[in-house]
Design a protein around this nucleic acid. Structure first.
Lengths: 182, 182
DNA sequence: ATTGCATATGCAAAAACTTTTATATAAATT
DNA sequence: AATTTATATAAAAGTTTTTGCATATGCAAT
């Protein structure tokens, strides 16, 4: 279990529907633990069946009905014991590095193109993180614990994006140095 | 498919047995695309069935027999077309950040402990990368393409480990500032 | 008006992929 | 005697991704 925990953590804030959880994911934890909305709905069903959350249907007239989920005591216990278990080491899947390992046998113009797209990607993401930082964390020295965690998540995003962005430039520089075809 | 491609890339160098591939994985691409040895054997079977690799049993007396796999032409074609397809964005699973999002509701002594373990983890890994760098890439300016790719992979490892290591210290500093119980 | 697209809301099933757990043999090393 | 290294397989369990279905409003463009 793992996505399950991310969902439970989201529900610590307040009860939410699957749709809301998905939306917030996209702006927050989702950067460190991706989940599609289908996955979230499915996981919520499992969690409800296991008794960790309780769902309540809210009738709506203008929109399809929502099912608002909240943590049960059992869910809180599960979160607590999860928080005390050793954290899984971070897992990364970097297809681009796999491609780099094939340099010499693949067209390096293609690889340079990918590196450029990646540079743009990291640049955009960094800009996004920085805008959130500016808007929501003007004074990091005094934050209540819940906000500290989010702030640190953002900081993690920022430092890793900065690093990978710099790496993209370095990689492009190196590959530009030897402008032969692949 | 993805692990499949990492395996095919490994076979670009030379024909290898599953065991060898696994061993090299652990020291190289595996840092960017994890695979257990069981996974590798299984994937090799699939690749052989699909005709992308060809396996040949080598009788051994002192050790169990090995099956040495090599790329087929078809496998090379597959690699080529894979290299031209858009690269998947990197995927990360950072359970630690999920836990940080729960700060305020979980024991922060536990979280600090995890952060310390993570700092050690990144410190060790950085040291490892740096040792490989010192041993194998003394002169990065003149490398043949194949080596360039590996060098860049290593560099990626180094810059991201440096960044996350610094982040761990920052996080520990912030959490030490507010020494309340969770 | 109508078409099409985006947003809001949810479900289900299949396919793909990864991880875990077992099972084997046998030499080398501690 | 126990552990590690070398070599490989298989089944099960778990997770993630993909694909497709549904309903319903609002908005923008034809």
């Amino acid at each position: 279990m793992a996505l399950a925990h991310a969902i439970l953590v989201s529900l610590l804030d307040r009860p939410q529907s699957g749709y809301e959880i998905g939306k917030r994911f996209d702006r927050t934890v989702g950067f460190f633990w991706k989940a599609s909305h289908q996955q979230i709905y499915q996981e919520l069903h499992k969690l409800a069946k296991a008794g960790l959350v309780r769902g309540e249907t809210v009738e709506q007239t203008e929109r399809p009905n929502r099912i608002v989920y909240e943590l049960t005591d059992c869910g809180r216990d599960a979160l607590d014991s999860w928080s005390r278990r050793a954290t899984d080491p971070p897992s990364v899947k970097e297809e681009l590095i796999v491609k780099l390992f094939a340099l010499g046998d693949v067209d390096d113009g293609v690889i340079r193109g990918e590196l450029e797209r990646r540079r743009d990607f990291h640049r955009d993401r960094l800009a996004y993180y920085e805008s959130v930082m500016a808007a929501h964390y003007p004074d990091p020295a005094r934050l209540r614990p819940r906000q500290q965690g989010r702030y640190l998540g953002l900081r993690m995003g920022i430092v890793t994006e900065q690093a990978t962005l710099a790496w993209c430039d370095e990689a492009l520089g190196l590959l530009a140095g030897a402008p032969a075809g692949g």
